[in-house]
Design a protein around this nucleic acid. Structure first.
Lengths: 210, 210
DNA sequence: CCTGTTGTTGTACGAATGTATAACAGAACT
DNA sequence: AGTTCTGTTATACATTCGTACAACAACAGG
């Protein structure tokens, strides 16, 4: 039993544990993310987890925050690379969800693991609210750049994030159902609809209220 | 320790275990759905589970099938009650997801628990594919009734199910974000868009292909 | 009433879980 | 070189997990 080891910079060790937790969640889901497995993935003894975190729940929560930040950065980067045209920026931001690294069955597995803990852990619930509010707020800002009337921005952002979430979900769960290009086309059409004035007093108005 | 008990009809006992599993999944999530908890919920000894099922995984899978059937029936009922107008039937089918008993945080919790097992269990993966294909097939049939061109039915159904899924997800996770009526309005507008001929060669065409 | 079948129970077992803790080893400082 | 601090390891503990199994009790048929 060799008890040799190398000491690491505290922040680096913390981060390596977070990223190890992310890999384990992606590959084995929430059920397989135990203290021992995560620490083995990080190449570290099980006891060390409690030295850096209050417990495994706290580590999972920090992993959620970190993963959410990674996703947020990737989307923001896509919008930034799209140039200055507001509509192109919005479309780039949205369709980035249908390409790597966002459209990834392992990322969905990780996300599902987070969702499954939201109800059980108040910290996770608060975190989830923050992450999602940030995501929707970004879409609202892009919609405002496109010149959408202020009164319509909120609901339009709700509609866009919902459609993108649904497409992303299906794209990860059953990739054979449709292609990322088809998803982008659908999202583009939806955005085009929302940026035009909504129909008023038309024949299908009553259906909307049913 | 009274060892008295009452013997039940085999099918009824099976069903009571399935429904107990459903309640436990809804209230405690996947992590809390253990053999002992489920059997206690069913008012039965832990050993009985293996008498009716190959193991807890098999019970969870059957619970998935049963819950999926319940949802499917509720949606079909909503469409049937909407009368004979094709568009009204489609809207009723879709907006039923935003009202009880579909829009229910506990149902989402159950569904998340199923999702979290899809990757781990091949039976669950197959089951999930079947359930979801049935759901989308229903939307395709309703779209065809509305007179949508056959070549556009598939993608339109993808878009509708994705938007509904996303709205349903947010409605369950964070009910304060928007109301069921707003969700119905968004879905109605999206359906109105999809039932009209798609834009061709417009200014925003290039964005769809980005 | 008695007897066979089997649905049902209670308990036991090995494995895995999260956490606690004493002993050890690496690094920095003198 | 010696000393101190603490990051790190290895192990132990109580609990919970899914499952296995022998004993029991309810019901049916004689």
């Amino acid at each position: 039993m060799s008890r040799s080891f190398t000491r690491a910079e505290p922040d680096a060790r913390r981060q390596s544990l977070i990223e190890a937790a992310g890999r384990v969640l992606a590959e084995r889901g929430a059920a397989g993310a135990s203290v021992r497995v995560i620490c083995a993935e990080a190449g570290v003894s099980p006891g060390l987890l409690r030295h850096y975190f209050d417990g495994i729940d706290a580590l999972i929560a920090e992993t959620y925050a970190w993963t959410g930040g990674q996703v947020s950065e990737a989307l923001a980067r896509a919008a930034a690379e799209a140039g200055s045209d507001p509509r192109a920026r919005l479309l780039a931001y949205v369709t980035a969800s249908f390409r790597a690294p966002i459209a990834d069955p392992q990322l969905l597995a990780t996300w599902i693991a987070f969702w499954s803990l939201v109800k059980a852990n108040p910290d996770m619930e608060r975190l989830h609210g923050e992450i999602y509010a940030g995501y929707r707020g970004e879409v609202e800002a892009l919609l405002a750049e496109c010149g959408l009337a202020a009164g319509e921005v909120r609901l339009a952002a709700v509609g866009i994030t919902a459609l993108v979430d649904g497409l992303w979900l299906e794209l990860c769960l059953a990739p054979a159902t449709f292609t990322p290009e088809e998803a982008s086309g659908i999202a583009g059409r939806w955005i085009g609809t929302l940026l035009n004035p909504p129909p008023e007093g038309e024949g299908d108005r009553e259906a909307v209220e049913g």
